[in-house]
Design a protein around this nucleic acid. Structure first.
Lengths: 186, 186
DNA sequence: CGACACCTTGAAACCCCTCAACGACTGTGG
DNA sequence: CCACAGTCGTTGAGGGGTTTCAAGGTGTCG
């Protein structure tokens, strides 16, 4: 099935046998979940809500039929799927070729932009229920190192992550650190 | 535009301003290139051939129209796009949560399976034009460490990568190392 | 023959991880 | 009401996987 997230947060992830976890991406209000499984019979990863959430479910098979019969609506949804893929590529580049503080800066910035887009939060901060463990598993780092890197961000006066809230103290500095190659047009 | 690779190898990648490069994926005969840009106006990464290659070009706009008008064909192509995304997720998990030798083992295995699928190579080996630099940029490692890790694979009697050819000496051992969570059904 | 790309190896340094311990907070059951 | 377990955040110490720097070797091509 495919879901549309109305309220709350969710994330998709893959679990390895030995317990390691890689978080593939986060979903905030307005995002689709499980779009990749519309055409593929089985997905290779799972998704889960992270907070209380309101979702609307769309039967995958029915969605497939809709896409085939109503090309206009289909395109819109596929556009969203393409967007997800673009974010996935950015995520891969982050994990593969950037260091801890760059990854963290970019993730915070990405979330900030996406949330501002749907009216949650501003360029100065936003509510964020992510634990350090989730940040670690999203960025391919250990919890301990995420903690130390967050402290670095705080000590440099760039951003503060605490008690469910991200405060961006210095947006410019943060963007500079992230070498801001922003994929969001506006 | 979208391309269908008939012969040869290609790869898609993203370049960072400071010269760092992340290879997003490799394409072998039978694969599509640039499928993600069918619906999105601009792609956030580039693609390039790696060897001499034969490709058939499909105008992206025309492909969009075809998808809208001939749902059957569209589904087939979108299935391929979904498959690409699934591989991208695996790639992200590799880079984020596996060590160098696991990543290398899994990449070799992935290429082996995909090439065997199109009749190039067997479970014992295949032609492979990848340099150590490309392996490094695909796996998020340094060239030097790829070199050392390849030596490890060789010394353990698992696989040999040399002069444009990959020889799989011990398929079982390699799969065990890769903790073979294979996304390829058959 | 020189230029260049690629492979290889050693040494040293660094980024990040693991292990370990502790405090704060939350919910739970006795 | 309080002990208890569990999750999360924090910090120190030590170790290891990986990187960087450096150098030399091979092969190819003009």
């Amino acid at each position: 099935s495919v879901f549309m997230l109305q309220e709350g947060w969710a994330y998709s992830f893959k679990l390895l046998r030995d317990g390691r976890r890689q978080i593939v991406g986060f979903a905030v209000p307005g995002d689709f979940l499980g779009l990749h499984s519309v055409l593929l019979p089985k997905s290779n990863y799972s998704a889960m809500t992270l907070t209380d959430a309101v979702v609307s479910e769309v039967d995958a098979e029915r969605l497939g039929r809709i896409i085939r019969r109503r090309p206009g609506l289909g395109s819109a949804i596929l556009w969203s799927a393409s967007w997800d893929t673009a974010m996935l590529v950015e995520h891969l580049v982050d994990v593969g070729r950037r260091n801890a503080i760059e990854r963290l800066a970019r993730l915070l910035l990405e979330l900030q932009v996406r949330l501002e887009l749907v009216g949650l939060g501003s360029d100065r901060g936003f509510e964020c229920p992510l634990t350090q463990g989730m940040l670690a598993d999203a960025l391919g780092l250990s919890i301990v190192h995420v903690n130390r890197t967050l402290r670095q961000l705080r000590e440099r006066g760039l951003a503060t992550v605490d008690s469910g809230r991200v405060v961006v103290n210095n947006p410019e500095g943060l963007r500079a650190l992230a070498a801001c190659e922003n994929i969001y047009p506006h």
